[in-house]
Design a protein around this nucleic acid. Sequence first.
DNA 1: CTGAAAGCGCTAACAA
DNA 2: TTGTTAGCGCTTTCAG
Lengths: 321, 321
Amino acid sequence: MKVKLEDVAKAAGVSPTTVSRVLNNRGYISDRTRAKVEEAIKELNYYPNDVARSLFKKRTNFIGLILPTVSNPFFGQLALYIENLCSTLGYKVILCNSSGQIEKEKSYSTMLIRHQVDGMIVCSYNRGIDTYMYPKLPIVAIDHYLSPTIPVVGSDNYAGGKLAIQHLIEQGCKSIIHINGPLEIETPAQLRRKAYEDLVENSVTYELPFEDEDTIVSIRKILKERPETDGIFASDDIIAAACLQVAREMNIHVPGQLKVVGYDGTETTMSLLPQLTTIKQPIEDIAKTSVLKLMDMIDNSEFSGPYETSLPVQLLINETT
Amino acid sequence: MKVKLEDVAKAAGVSPTTVSRVLNNRGYISDRTRAKVEEAIKELNYYPNDVARSLFKKRTNFIGLILPTVSNPFFGQLALYIENLCSTLGYKVILCNSSGQIEKEKSYSTMLIRHQVDGMIVCSYNRGIDTYMYPKLPIVAIDHYLSPTIPVVGSDNYAGGKLAIQHLIEQGCKSIIHINGPLEIETPAQLRRKAYEDLVENSVTYELPFEDEDTIVSIRKILKERPETDGIFASDDIIAAACLQVAREMNIHVPGQLKVVGYDGTETTMSLLPQLTTIKQPIEDIAKTSVLKLMDMIDNSEFSGPYETSLPVQLLINETT
DNA sequence: CTGAAAGCGCTAACAA
DNA sequence: TTGTTAGCGCTTTCAG
């Protein structure tokens, strides 16, 4: 049997209340009693049971993090920063990889509610999940509009798209296409796309199919279809990398014949593919802003500040343009 | 106030026990009662409180996952698979990014114990953390020997190193060096290194300093120091990528003058840097094996099967060799 | 400064 | 087939 507070109390010859008091540094305790209790704790190798504590306090210090997949460099880095900051603030993170599937997202969110999480951070691609409407459950959404009561934190996708396109145009591109990823069913990519469509006449946007496997194949087809293409704005770095690969196999010189701009600018991209020109998202800021906003909502049952936070992005010019 | 089981009972005009029974599908309930209860549940938008349930059952269905950082492609992908499988099996994952720091790892592990996790999966670089010795706490270690009672799951690092080196030799390399990462303080990389040192005469292993920032600088120095180098076996893909970058800036042709082999072969590497020849780890298998092993320990309070599981790796030959 | 007692929301004997 | 009761391990009034 696990040792519990009562065992410590017995060993120290005091009441459970007293042990609880030294554990929580609450109220007055004589130094002698405290010493006795602390010794007993050490002696018995006692760890307080936070489940019991949570039940009483109606507060778990858990937050749920729902994202498509932590395996993606952007979400991985985001998850790192979010978890690190939460940990600093005394919160634990429950990780949920939804693969962007609405069913999974639903079942994760009910799971999180049942576990009494104090709040959730959601990188969702799905609206209309009713559990997100659970009474006064603090939620922050990253880069997506879930509902008027759920604040949104993200980067300035329109500006990002604009930076990318303007750069391509400045570099002399005449025939720029935009390639959108499969995951991006909803909002954020749409603003990047909108910037593209606003700035480029005769704009052509391609949406990749769902199966990752086919990305290369699709891009190959696209480039064959439109050999005049001399600029690609990809909606993330992974897609940009695929474009580079296809260009290589088709002997299209980058940046000579074709220029490519990606999106995200994660640590991983910058390590593995430092040549890529890309739009760098302020991932750490996004993490920080959303966590602090969530904490605000948890503590004050309402968020202060803007409904939407749009953080600035940055163009990183490298060798693919 | 949140609605609780008792409220449902009242609304349905039955006892709490009955509600509990329909919730858990346990014992006999008349269809009429069940229907009434289910209606009340829906009506009140009731979610069971899993904290209370956990307290009673002495089982949380939580598992803790400690790894250096989920932002690294290898650990990110591993975390994805582990979480997905756990989720399928009814477990939730608490994410802990230790940055490889022993202090963080310690505080994470005591946190996890206090939260009554049913088990832990640890990608640790630190031995001698005494909380890992917490009485009968099921733990599985990935790629590291933590203690004789903690089973280890990993891939065959020696074979991986051997594959890499043999391939470099077959490709005609005469002066092969090995570059080790900063994170790899302990075991697994050491077997890769051992393979290298066993197979290469006059072996030279470089260990990168802790600061990521300096990776490029260090490698630059290494290549200047040993211009005769014609083969590099890097202990992971990120380092390999840095080598490629330095080679590019120094106008060293790859694979003509220099061949590079990485290690890990993650999805991300294969997307962003498909040219890289690398040793592919069976990440999904590692995840699956460790989760199943952990479940085994949770259910039977002891693991069956081998103390150590070493999964096969694979050489992926691409354009850098 | 310390202790006794009630209860957080749920489940599982044990009765009925 | 259903209800009564005790209790999971902790915290907190309220007395002393």
